[in-house]
């Protein structure tokens, strides 16, 4: 039996906005096991980043629990949380804004070590240099400033900083989205290598389905603050159950010549998450929607081993929309 590292239970995050309540994350529950990578996919505004940030308590939650090592960390005092942060780190999307532009690379990586006093002061330099080589950054850049580095190297520094305190869990929030494909492959390989060597657990947030499939063991698909489907990575691509997942998979452009796949073009845009209407949140864009979908919210049900989906009509025939 695999060991649970993190249990997210009925997590909710609402933001108050002038026109009501924005349901960014609505009653989301999932587990993360030790040593695995959980991919969190969805389009902009579906709440993926908010989940990552709420788990790490970078923003306060509205309701729910996050159980880490048997304790609800959302109830921790700030001070206790600060100590715990050593074990839980984050890699940000934009390597251009997540590094302090007035500090050198050496100072940036040394900062968490200095604050947490995990390493005696006279050894910090050594540790930083060691980390640099682990992350594939030349020692020569120790005294450089972030603006002197290209995007790929900057992202490496962001990763190294997250690793400085030997964490066990890392939230990767779109770590390769702003990088070119040739650099993206380098960073993905680095993340996988570090995971093996340091026994890390990742929550990998991304909108790029091929990247998520490549790196994840399990995938959670989100739509408007809710989980619509979750299962093993390969299963999701072979046998998607929810109409939104099907549409999402069919919309990914494939870099192969003349590869025809039946495409489901969704009508309209993602509706506003402010004061959401009752019923299934995907119903207004769904080609399968019937009356029940607009009135009754489907529950997340398990259909086969570890494969959950939130739809009234899972498994029904007539799977493709009439176009």
């Amino acid at each position: 039996m695999k060991e649970k590292l993190i249990e997210v239970k009925s997590l909710k995050k609402y933001f108050k906005v002038p026109s009501g309540e924005l349901h960014a994350v609505d009653d989301v529950s999932f587990d993360i096991y030790k040593g695995e990578t959980v991919g969190l996919v969805g389009e902009s505004g579906c709440g993926k980043s908010t989940i990552g940030r709420t788990i790490l308590r970078l923003i306060p939650h509205t309701a729910g629990e996050v159980i880490y090592k048997g304790e609800n960390i959302l109830a921790y005092s700030d001070e206790k949380m600060r100590t715990l942060r050593r074990e839980m780190q984050m890699i940000f999307q934009d390597p251009y804004s997540s590094l302090d532009s007035r500090k050198t690379i050496g100072q940036i990586i040394a900062e968490p070590l200095l604050i947490n006093k995990t390493v005696p002061k006279n050894q910090i330099n050594e540790v930083v240099l060691d980390l640099l080589s682990k992350g594939g950054v030349s020692r020569k850049l120790y005294n450089s400033y972030p603006h002197e580095l290209d995007g790929g190297r900057r992202q490496r520094v962001g990763i190294i900083r997250a690793l400085a305190l030997n964490p066990s869990f890392i939230v990767c929030d779109e770590p390769v989205s702003s990088l070119d494909v040739s650099i993206q492959a380098q960073i993905l390989n680095l993340l996988q290598e570090l995971q093996r060597n340091m026994n890390l657990t990742y929550l990998f947030i991304s909108h790029d389905l091929s990247v998520v499939r490549h790196i994840s063991d399990r995938i959670i698909v989100m739509y408007l603050g809710e989980i619509v489907e979750s299962c093993n990575a390969n299963e999701l691509f072979k046998n998607p159950l929810h109409p939104y997942t099907k549409a999402l998979l069919s919309a990914v452009p494939i870099a192969k010549y003349n590869q025809q796949r039946q495409r489901i073009i969704l009508k309209g845009d993602v509706p506003s998450p402010i004061n959401p209407k009752p019923g299934c949140r995907f119903a207004p864009r769904c080609w399968k929607a019937k009356d029940i979908c607009f009135n009754e919210c489907p529950c997340l049900k398990e259909y086969s081993d570890g494969h959950q989906a939130r739809c009234h009509f899972v498994g029904e025939a007539d799977d493709m929309p009439a176009t």
Partner: peptide
């Protein structure tokens, strides 16, 4: 060739290391 090789293939089950183009522009 490198550009094509370093894309993760959405139709593949493999999660082995991706081919990379070393270095940068």
């Amino acid at each position: 060739k490198g550009l094509f090789a370093c894309l993760p293939d959405i139709d593949s089950e493999s999660s082995g290391a991706l081919k990379v183009i070393p270095g940068a522009m």
